[in-house]
């Protein structure tokens, strides 16, 4: 049976019925995005692979944790990936700081269910737009945003790491995000409210 033409929702329904071929098709569709995000956050392929495995096996073992009424599958997978990768990153920091042993359990993830980019544009178009938007904001602002989002750092940690006053770090993040939003609104990628 060709699953390539099935909708994401149909594939998830088949996963509920324990059809591993449906999981394979979901993996084919989204593994690049999921792996790329995990690698961007964690910076090493081994940890990124572990996160990707956990994310897809979470869908396989707990398909009910994805609620199609609250968003599309792709953004949900990315949301789970981001949360998990940031969690791994923070645990890694704590572990290194206190020289703790690695823990193996995968705690349940509280998934944020915000706006869904796929309702606004295709994932590829949105990805292209956000990359162009990031390229247009000043380097210092982009750096502060990326440290927060991809490295899981608070504004206080960013301030300390960059050796800048707390207010400066907050302002850079705020200004950068506002420019991003303005650009994305002009592009029609996000709503202007």
């Amino acid at each position: 049976m060709d699953l390539g033409s099935e909708t994401d929702q149909a594939l998830v329904a088949q996963i509920v019925e324990r059809d591993s071929a449906a999981l394979d098709e979901v993996y084919r569709r989204y593994s690049r995005s999921v792996y790329s995000l995990a690698y961007r956050v964690l910076g090493d392929s081994t940890a990124a692979e572990d996160v990707v495995q956990e994310v897809f096996l979470k869908l396989w073992r707990q398909p009910q944790s994805y609620n199609p009424e609250r968003g599309s599958l792709g953004p949900w997978l990315l949301s789970v990936t981001h949360n998990r990768a940031i969690d791994v990153l923070r645990r890694r920091r704590v572990r290194e700081e206190y020289q703790l042993p690695e823990t193996l359990e995968f705690e349940d993830i509280v998934v944020d269910q915000g706006a869904d980019p796929s309702d606004l544009a295709s994932l590829h178009e949105a990805a292209d737009a956000i990359r162009r938007a990031l390229a247009q904001i000043p380097e210092a602002q982009r750096q502060a945003i990326e440290m927060a989002f991809f490295q899981g750092k608070t504004h206080a940690e960013i301030s300390e790491e960059l050796g800048e006053p707390l207010g400066t770090a907050k302002t850079r993040i705020r200004l950068g995000m506002r420019k991003l939003r303005t650009f994305l609104e002009k592009e029609g990628v996000v709503t202007s409210g």
Binding site: R32, S33, L78, A126, I145
Partner: peptide, 20 residues
């Protein structure tokens, strides 16, 4: 809600890599 949209999209702002 508006700010959240941009935050969601940041997840896509990564270089595309091929998993093994």
């Amino acid at each position: 809600g508006r700010a959240w949209q941009a935050g969601q999209l940041l997840r896509l702002a990564v270089p595309t890599l091929e998993p093994p």
